[in-house]
Design a binder for these strands. Structure first.
Lengths: 171, 171
DNA sequence: CGCCTATCGTTTGTCAGACAACCTATCTTC
DNA sequence: GAAGATAGGTTGTCTGACAAACGATAGGCG
């Protein structure tokens, strides 16, 4: 096993952009940790995100919630079911529109979220352990702002990308 | 779990740490874009990452490659198959160990990667369009370093996490 | 009012990717 | 050379994402 040490590559640039890989790596680890921590929160990190939005933001309907989190409506259905069964949120009929359901947090839900957030914050520090303290905050902040911007510009459509082969023409 | 958290969280994070969501958001968009751009590179971003490592780093064997990218060996098998079929890399028997295969890039593979990297870099700027120019580089850099650290500390095991319910005791 | 279309939430089915288990060929050790 | 370890490959299972269809209700319009 004589591996040329990968650390001897000084030029970051030479290795090309491994941004996608890096993000995937960090996210995967985040997921592992959080999923472990929130084992008995219904649907783990999924449930966590949803609960967080329900508690912290005033999101009128399930549809709006799906839009806010950029997840599929059909997913919301059963996650909310289970969060409701766990007594963390409630699904109430909207008096103005009987098609819609308003999702509100229970007190238990609020408590649970608070505890979950403590744990997740801790886990995140662990995940970002490779970065010095102050840079973690920077990273988190940049991620949040990048994500927010992406989410705002939701339609992923960008007609200006001319789809053309990466491959050089066959000789 | 005594909780006067030593690291008093800034009010910013009271809104809940949506770090995981943010990362997911950015990564998802990255994926969409890149997958589109590299449509005819076998296995898209997957093939891209593998090709990048094969070209830029001296990775001895398939197993080492899998370890480097932290992906499953069984995935490598067919991705490499297809990259090889596309004439981008070659799988050569290792003269020292006939079990092992050395994976080397072809000239065509190198050209293809160069083109792919151009496109991906462009796409990434687009994905990070919500951040001002100089912060994008910071973000990329932090991501890379965080990921590298995570990858170095590969075993996700952390015995210090006491698995305990997030939910408050049922009344 | 009766009809038409859009929207909300839900259900169902399909598909791809992740991962474990197993297999064969080869190397290493004793 | 027999036993166990390791490289690569194959197979099967399971999960999660997503599309499509559905019932219920709202709003517009004749």
């Amino acid at each position: 096993m004589s591996v040329t040490d990968p650390c001897e590559l000084p030029a970051d640039r030479r290795r090309g952009s491994n941004f996608g890989w890096s993000l995937g790596m960090v996210l995967r680890r985040w997921h592992e940790r959080v999923e472990e921590l929130l084992k008995d929160l219904p649907h783990g990190s999924r449930g966590y995100h949803i609960l967080a939005v329900v508690v912290h933001e005033e999101v009128p309907t399930q549809g709006a919630l799906a839009a806010r989190l950029a997840i599929d409506r059909s997913v919301l259905t059963y996650v909310i079911d289970d969060l409701a069964n766990a007594g963390l949120i409630e699904r109430r009929p909207d008096p103005q529109d009987r098609r819609a359901r308003r999702v509100v947090a229970t007190e238990r839900g609020r408590q649970t979220l608070a505890e979950a957030e403590r744990r997740v914050a801790h886990a995140e520090d662990h995940v970002l352990g490779g970065l010095p303290e102050e840079q973690r905050e920077v990273f988190r902040d940049l991620a949040a702002r990048a994500a927010e911007a992406i989410h705002a510009a939701a339609p992923a459509t960008d007609p200006c990308v001319a789809v053309q082969s990466v491959l050089p023409p066959a000789d």
